[in-house]
Amino acid sequence: MRWVLPRKDLESWLVFLNRDENLIVPDGSQGFLKYQGKVFLEGKPRLSIKEFFLPWREPLLSFEAIPGVIPTPCLPTGKKIIFGVLPCDAKAITLIARVYEKDLHFQERLRNTVLIGVIRKKEESCFCTAMGVDPFKGEGLDILVLPKDDILLIEPLTPRGKELLPEGAREASTEEENLYNEAMESFRKTAFVSPLWEKLKKTELLPLYEAPFWEELSFPCLNCGVCTYLCPTCYCFDVQDEVVGAKGIRVRLPDSCMFLLYSQHASGHNPRKTPLARFRNRFMHKFKYYLDEYGEPLCVGCGRCNDACPAGINLWDILKAMGEV
């Protein structure tokens, strides 16, 4: 069953959601921020909600250089509600969750975070449907909101989502239900679903790995970390000890496969020494290794990498080339 809330009542809903002061909303264009009376539901935030599940700095344990003192674990605390999540970002979290299935910190965060998705206008750089993502399915979300003219059509997807429905909401009439269904169908009708995945699943690994196109496509790449840091599905991490005096904290932070240090062994050997090898690894991981393992590509088509790449590299060119092998 769906619910309807007049758009002018959005603020009171947000205030209701923020009763524990743990509401997070999109902040203009940069990313997501604590709710301070403003919410932006237009445009695509540059940073995804990944940072609330794999934070920029996740303390794992703290230790002291004193004999007999046992390190104490750090666990994330507190519950969060994130409003205005892009459905593709939420889907990305479900993709990461498969890999982090047994990770204490990630699962703790997943349990303690409620995601409320809002369907936005499709932007030029969006290509989620081609990656097999359907925003109307609301995967990974607790509530899905479709803004339509001056009302918000609200669909709770999980029990904990139902508890957070606005007080002023009324049940949707048949007309309004139809409005939602129409929007969904018209979106699905125009959606482009790529036949590439079935093909790539069957492609042999080695010819893809050794394909000659990697050299040409990787030439402009600067090997910076823009695509991996902005990507909502990239989940690689680094572990560092931050030490001051005799005390220290072991932290986990995002790492990027584009960096030389990422694959550097302690022996000095580096299996991915060349820029080409690092470039190839990123796309092979997303569109072959992960695909083979879980049956879906590790990409939700948000288009952030294409938007931000300083070298003008486009995911589609690489996918096209991979599909032709």
Partner: peptide, 21 residues
């Protein structure tokens, strides 16, 4: 966000190992 795009996009930042590494 420390993506090092500024470093890698700079033609004069050519050190094989940067001081941050």
């Amino acid at each position: 966000i420390r993506c090092y795009a500024c470093r890698n996009a700079c033609p004069l930042c050519y050190c094989p190992q940067c001081f941050v590494d």
